[in-house]
Simulated assay, not measured.
Amino acid sequence: MVCLSRGRNPAEPERLDERRHQMIAAAERIFLSKGYHRATMDDVAREACVSKKTIYQLVESKEALFEALLESRRALLRIDLPDATCPPADALTGILTKLADFILAPQQIALLRLIMAEYAHSPDLARIFLRREHDRALSTMEAYLASLNERGICTLPEIAEAAKMLTGMALGEFHSGVLLGKSAAPSRDAIKRRIAEAVQIFLRGTAGPIPALAPSEGTG
């Protein structure tokens, strides 16, 4: 238990930031140990060693607190748009490697398992999670793939779908295996190999013009 400091002016911006950070850390421990449905704001207040009133000064509801927790996790995913001089294979590998570090992190897996377990009681949790999960990574991926399209390196009629397909090919099996407990977390070498293979297949498959579809039988 990490207690928030008392006796300080909560109006000071740096103190508010400190309290918010420690409140979110306390909330994460409570949600993961008790589950979202059973956790209460009283539990979070006790874990953070503050009054419930203080908690409500920082967030308006338990749902808002959980969303703040998810946002604090998303803030750890920092992916910049690769420079145009970077080779496409290296750029895509960099994006996918950072995404792998994020989605396969034990804390992120634990939060997603919590959401899956709580869905029957709190379906809004899944909507909060899915509404913004991986937005930063996918938006960067989409922007970079669009730049490859513009430069004629790839031919992608559906940028958003292409980003999801590449991400799924590179990381989908690893993520689902760890999430469902079917396999242990992959090694760095295994992740590196899978990403490299997926990127090469993707770039080879999307290079050049899209072939015309063969006419179906009976058409002329």
Rank of each mutant, 00 (worst) to 15 (best):
D42F: 14
L65F: 02
S51I: 15
L81A: 09
K53N: 15
D90P: 02
N149P: 01
K98I: 07
F66S: 01
A110P: 04
E142S: 07
L96V: 01
D124F: 13
F102K: 04
E150T: 12
L58Y: 06
C49A: 14
D80Q: 15
S147Q: 15
E71K: 13
A91Y: 01
R136T: 08
A117F: 01
D124G: 14
V50L: 12
Q108V: 06
T93S: 00
T93G: 00
R73V: 03
L138T: 08
C86M: 07
I95P: 01
A75R: 11
R127A: 03
A64M: 13
V44L: 06
R113F: 02
V44A: 08
E63R: 14
S122H: 09
L77S: 03
G94F: 02
E150K: 09
D42S: 13
V59L: 07
F66W: 10
L111T: 11
E118S: 11
E118Q: 10
K53P: 06
V59G: 02
L125D: 03
A45M: 15
A117N: 04
D101F: 07
D43G: 08
E47V: 01
A45C: 15
R113T: 00
L138C: 10
L104P: 05
S147R: 15
Q107E: 14
A117Y: 00
E118I: 14
L70W: 09
L70A: 09
T54R: 13
L111E: 01
A84H: 15
R132D: 15
T54V: 15
R132P: 11
T140Q: 04
T97G: 02
K98T: 09
A146W: 08
Y56K: 11
E71A: 08
I103H: 01
L145V: 06
F129W: 10
A68R: 09
Q57K: 13
M41Q: 10
L145Q: 06
M116V: 04
T140G: 01
G152D: 07
S122M: 11
I128A: 07
D80V: 08
Q107H: 10
H121K: 12
L148N: 01
E60T: 13
I115C: 02
F66N: 02
T93V: 03
I128C: 10
K98C: 02
P106G: 11
F102D: 06
C49Q: 10
G94L: 00
E71S: 13
L96K: 03
L65Y: 05
M141H: 02
S61G: 07
T97N: 09
L145F: 10
E47N: 10
E150I: 06
E47W: 06
K52H: 09
P87A: 05
L130P: 04
L65E: 04
I115V: 12
R73P: 04
H134Y: 07
C49N: 12
Q107K: 10
T97I: 03
E133G: 07
K98W: 02
A105K: 05
A105F: 03
I115K: 01
R73E: 12
E142W: 06
A64R: 13
D80T: 09
F102N: 03
P123F: 13
E150R: 13
G94Q: 04
A120F: 09
E150C: 02
A45W: 12
S139H: 08
P123M: 08
R132L: 12
I109D: 00
P106A: 13
E118F: 05
S72L: 03
